[in-house]
Design a binder for these strands. Sequence first.
DNA 1: TTAGGGTTAG
Length: 800
Amino acid sequence: MTNDALVTIARNHSNIIRFCLCIIKPQNPVTLEPLDTGFGAIIQHCKELWQLSLSDLLTDRVFEYIRVHAKKLEMLSLAFPGDNHLDLHYLLSGVRASASWRLETAPLAMTVRSLWMPDCSVTLKIIEQLSKKICLAMAMSKISLRKCNGILSISFFHISYSSSSSSSSSYSRSCKVKGRVVLNFEKLKCLDDAVTLFHQMVTMKPLPSVVDFSKLFNNMIKMKHYSAVLSLFRQMQKLGIPISDFILSSMINSYCLMHRADFGFSVLPIYLKNGIPFNNVTFTTLIRGIFAENKVKDAAELFKKLVREKICDPDEIMYATVMNGLSKRGHTQKTLSLLRLMEQGNTEPNIYIYSIVIDALCKDGNLDAAINILNEMKQKDIPPNIVTYNSIIDGLCKLGQWEKVKTLFSEMVNLNMYPDVRTFNILTDGLCKEGKVEDAEEVMKHMVEKGVEPNVITYNVIMDGYCLCGQLDRARGIFDILIDKGIEPDIFSYNILTDGLCKEGKVEDAEEVMKHMVEKGVEPNVITYNVIMDGYCLCGQLDRARRIFDILIDNGIEPDIFSYNILINGYCKKKKLTKAMQLFREVSHKGLKPDIVTYNTILQGLFEVGRIGVAKQLFVEMVSTGPVPNLSIYHTLLDGYFKYGLVEEAMSLFNKLEKNKENIDIESYNIIINGLCKNGELDKAHTIFQKLSSMGLLLDVRIYTTMITGFCLQGLLDEAKDMLRKMEENGCFPNNVTYNVIVRGYLRCRKINEMVTLMKEMTGRGFSFDTTTAKLLVKEISENPSILDMIPELHTEKKK
DNA sequence: TTAGGGTTAG
């Protein structure tokens, strides 16, 4: 691949790739300084894009953070043993803090966690040192910063310290084979080990091979010390140690795993400078990184460019990466097209490719298509494996097609392929979601008999099953079994339990669980907080919900759209629309997008308090910049319009929907009929009601009840009663609401005899008066006590 | 003999 070609991609592409141009000078790329130039450009980029200056760094908020996070910073102090040993490096590590600054402690400090001593004077010293270091580091131009939507991320890490200061580690006992040191990377336990080994390696004579360095880096990546890998690589560059394509792709991968694919591109000029050709791994890694940031369009564009301009010849892995990236983000059709493209080209689809396509189709519930692909691959002599079967079984379970699940199970076993822990987990999950938790427990017994050990997911699934059907004690029991078995509960286990507790209104208990998980070293995530917030909102304790939201932010966790939806809903239910709107605006400022639920919640809230103008404005805004309105949104609008007597507006919207052949359902008609009745348009309502059956819609108890309510409202009790009889003839049985509505109708018209007749009928069917009816009855009796004598049942009740 | 790929749990 030529430099020109790369530059062409960069020029014609998105910001990320165009950013490459800062680094790759088309005229003479070889004269470029490698990474430093890259960093210089990145710093420039940060300054220009995020308008950051030194004074931004040393604000009160830093000190506030330091106060709150003194514990972490104290550890950090130990990472400042003296001058020259340390280098502060701010990196865009993906550590974010909203409303507060977050300092990621030095990995070195992590290793001295046990030495932590809380003491204010120490903290002050750190602040002093810290500010010096920050200036120093700035001066050294080794800082990169990120400020986006008011969020600043800083990550510290330790990039060089003397090897002599380190304690001897197990891996240092390396042996020599034919004069060359054999390094044991298996024994690396922590970052400290890795960094020490690196420093030993660079002083060895002869120098370890590039393969050894590569192994070291990959071990560090496995330990998730991405920024440290990049830092050591910089050291390597400075020392002039030879590098390879393997090392460079690991650097790109480190950036990508930090969710900074854009910086991944900054590695490309190092290839150029060292005369190392790009290969498929280079681009596959980048594509995967771009997908990881959900930039589907960018990733797909890059892939298309690479293919179209013959920059590389994609292999199965590159195809798999692109297809997986697309399919996991809902682009099943595009994934399928790529399969067909592969079939026409030189690269034969393999089992991985087919599994991706099959899984995507299954996730869409398109099991027929999935099974067709399964048969296609069988015909091509590519035997499906356990993964393929697991995907299909999962799809079938989710559709409740248990017979087909059985068929597939026996098909697998006939092929000598035995269900694994995932297969059983899929099965237990399917059963639990259908409420058959006892059957799921049977499956668990069965798997043990078959020698497949349940894992934390098995237990989580069953716990969730019991929570879903309100059997919280049983869920707790499963949790205890999990502990007894020596399986570590994970974040899901705790979240399921907190969710179960919150749904039962035991939010304080849920908070206890949260405390407990922290003690056990499992950090609550955004879902934990969301669940508890929702719990408090559900029981009307909005202040407590808000408190949880603030704690979430203080702990440096990014609220997601669910967090906002929960809180906005809480405020709307309490009719605090100003607060709700504030939060709604905050969503966009935080770089999140309001979703359909956000809009629906806030629209409902606005209509509830009568702020119709704002609601209309918001709908206009939604149509132009938000998600495509769905039926729920239209229902909210229709309901809102009718509520405030805006019949014409409601009907014109409704006619538009009908004309556009939107999927209007029985619920839509229910809203229309109810709205018309409440606005004195009974005839219009009845006309619409009458045409429903001929439209092929199945009338349900709700719509009959709405129509009956309409008749009662006008005092047309005979019509109401006729409707009651008619619905039964049509096989739709009245429920408690239906009877109560009609009873109230009779009561209002003082038709007590008729009411009593109906009352007998309803009690005979196991129904009873609801509170509204009971209140009305009391009111009527107080105004006209003679009613009492006409209700024999009530009379005897009273005597008792 | 060191780099990039597929399945589960809110």
